[in-house]
Design a protein around this nucleic acid. Sequence first.
DNA 1: TGTTAAACGAGACGGTACGTCACGTCTTCCG
DNA 2: CGGAAGACGTGACGTACCGTCTCGTTTAACA
Lengths: 211, 211, 211, 211
Amino acid sequence: MIKNVDPDDARRTRSRSEPTKVAVLRAVSELLAERGLRQMTIEDIAAKAGVGKSTIYRRWPSKGSLALDAFLEEFLSTQPAVNTGSLEGDLRQALSSWVVTVDGTATGRSLASLIAEVQLDPEMGFAWRENFLEVVRAQHRQIVAHAISRGEIASDSDANLIIDMLFGPAYHRLMHGHLGLTRDFVEGVVAMVVAGAKSGAASPTTRSRRV
Amino acid sequence: MIKNVDPDDARRTRSRSEPTKVAVLRAVSELLAERGLRQMTIEDIAAKAGVGKSTIYRRWPSKGSLALDAFLEEFLSTQPAVNTGSLEGDLRQALSSWVVTVDGTATGRSLASLIAEVQLDPEMGFAWRENFLEVVRAQHRQIVAHAISRGEIASDSDANLIIDMLFGPAYHRLMHGHLGLTRDFVEGVVAMVVAGAKSGAASPTTRSRRV
Amino acid sequence: MIKNVDPDDARRTRSRSEPTKVAVLRAVSELLAERGLRQMTIEDIAAKAGVGKSTIYRRWPSKGSLALDAFLEEFLSTQPAVNTGSLEGDLRQALSSWVVTVDGTATGRSLASLIAEVQLDPEMGFAWRENFLEVVRAQHRQIVAHAISRGEIASDSDANLIIDMLFGPAYHRLMHGHLGLTRDFVEGVVAMVVAGAKSGAASPTTRSRRV
Amino acid sequence: MIKNVDPDDARRTRSRSEPTKVAVLRAVSELLAERGLRQMTIEDIAAKAGVGKSTIYRRWPSKGSLALDAFLEEFLSTQPAVNTGSLEGDLRQALSSWVVTVDGTATGRSLASLIAEVQLDPEMGFAWRENFLEVVRAQHRQIVAHAISRGEIASDSDANLIIDMLFGPAYHRLMHGHLGLTRDFVEGVVAMVVAGAKSGAASPTTRSRRV
DNA sequence: TGTTAAACGAGACGGTACGTCACGTCTTCCG
DNA sequence: CGGAAGACGTGACGTACCGTCTCGTTTAACA
């Protein structure tokens, strides 16, 4: 849930709100899977969850934030922390997990829909970065940190750049659909990123010296 | 315009439709810039263009396809073919042009909105890839082809992969807004892609031999 | 046709306009019968008659006046002048002809629709009275005139009243549909009108003397 | 209101719907008077009543049925039960009341418009007969019943025929506008009907014996 | 017989109103 | 007294016709 981070408020209403919240999020997940974000209406959700519309509006400010909450629960659990002992292994596993969760699945379509919603509803931007993006990226930054501590790559390598080089192309294909998220694609991206990172291209100082 | 590519039809109605089409697309461009895709209504457009709603519905099947047409005109002209004589120079120039056009501009917001629209309206997918994505990618494939013919990279390098490695991270930052499209970012991406491509990581055969 | 009574104009365009006019009126008759005045659109008519919309608008000012023209042709021919030799016989025959033409027929529905149209379109009132009502009533006034000249009824009998007493109830049942236009109804109305007229109730002087 | 005669339903929603219903019907009455049924749009009504369009569509199936409801309230109260002690007096008073309410008034124009609407919208027929025509006719049948019980006319006189003979001509003049609803007209109609009824012309058995 | 102006079919156009939908708010009434 | 139920005001939707207006293209009357 995006609003109501005040713990007092959360504690005070937990007993009543928990079953309602669960019912609503379950309804949202199902509707999101079966007809997509745009075709899903608040009235549908209320009816399916056996809940009044005002109960929903009391807890979530928009359809998007509601969908975000439902999505977070089902997505984040699928992305385990990884530690294979090598940068290449870690990157491959992180990207593969993402592809498996997302390629051709309802979760994948929800992810795309939510990124779309963020573009169209300015109020969603902050919640999206805070509750989804930063959570995932924090894990991924660990991968780079491990590679540095292992001495695989330069200590001033730009972790943000490396992560974006790994996932950017994947999100790109997810959203434009021009090419598939194949095993070959994963291998290619990983190989490119590893080669680039080890060559020092992700390190600002190395790079500027070269230029 | 997406529909009506039949030249006969176009010729028969050209004289009437041109001024109307221009007026509508201009109105769309302005409204898109000043209030965004979701806040722009067909009625707004009709009123601003001095045109009946039915005239719009007669020519475009949805708000998205209308926005796409308006966007294409204003975007494509900003992305020149490049040929600097080196892979690195070409990639840098292509990505820089894109960043300049898109970073912090109305065009950039329109681009993000349209990609969003494509996720939410299944009928837009084909038109988007056909009229936008493939047009741009065809140019970019030339960059890779030139690099191969110069002998800079392996002849079986995967052009699609290289292009997605270059632009994927950029679209990623555009849409999630977690980090800026800075000069440093451009340099980093280009360096990574060049290093990866020259190492053979973009070439399936080289890659599989290594694995 | 309501407009264009100028004979010059008619002569100048006769050869072209006749077939067009006929085709349009035929199309109107059919559409009127098969779907009613409200469901019939000018575009339907133009399409069915194989004629441009503007050709229709050039000749008729409204859908109602067009329907009126079509209706007149098919209705008036069914109402013959009557002369049975008695008031009662004449009235019975006039009313019977009307009922036969109108009861449960497409013509009847068209008649009701046109009277309706006259209520809703103020411009139709004059054309309706001039081209339909007065034509029919002129015939009916003859019936009363004959009865007077035969000495059946007082010479100052109010012909308009007698005609309205005969047809008023019939139009009433046609339009409200509360009761049928049965043989018994016709007999009852005729008997009432004959009794009233012969009693002098239709004659202002007789009436006022009684009061 | 035509729909929702179920008392449970009415009770459940009474408190909310009453003010809304009243506001809408008032707006309809005014618009009907000032611009007529055809020129009155649902959007006008909603705006004037300070109500959403959907609220109107939720309660009334068409513009006609809405106008009917508004009309009933303003018309029925003007037609009192009559009992003067004689058939002639009763008929005169009933017809006079009608003429006064209808001749040259907004109510008269509304009445004509509604009868028109019934012709053009098949779904209105039943509601019209049930909620308007039968209500009025039930009163008028009393007039005939009283005349029979007084012995003024034959006991098998056809009340429906007598009523149609009285009002048919009046509706006829209202809708065609060929002649006025004058005092003389009223006297003539009443005299004709009384003469006919007392002569036995309204009685099937008497009539058939004569024929 | 060839020229020319009208009337024509076709249908795009700027509009208006339609009836539907989902929104987010607000009121009622039940458990 | 909190919540389901759902009516409400709002406003955009996409459709259907309206009546007007260009477009070429016949076509028939005159040169």
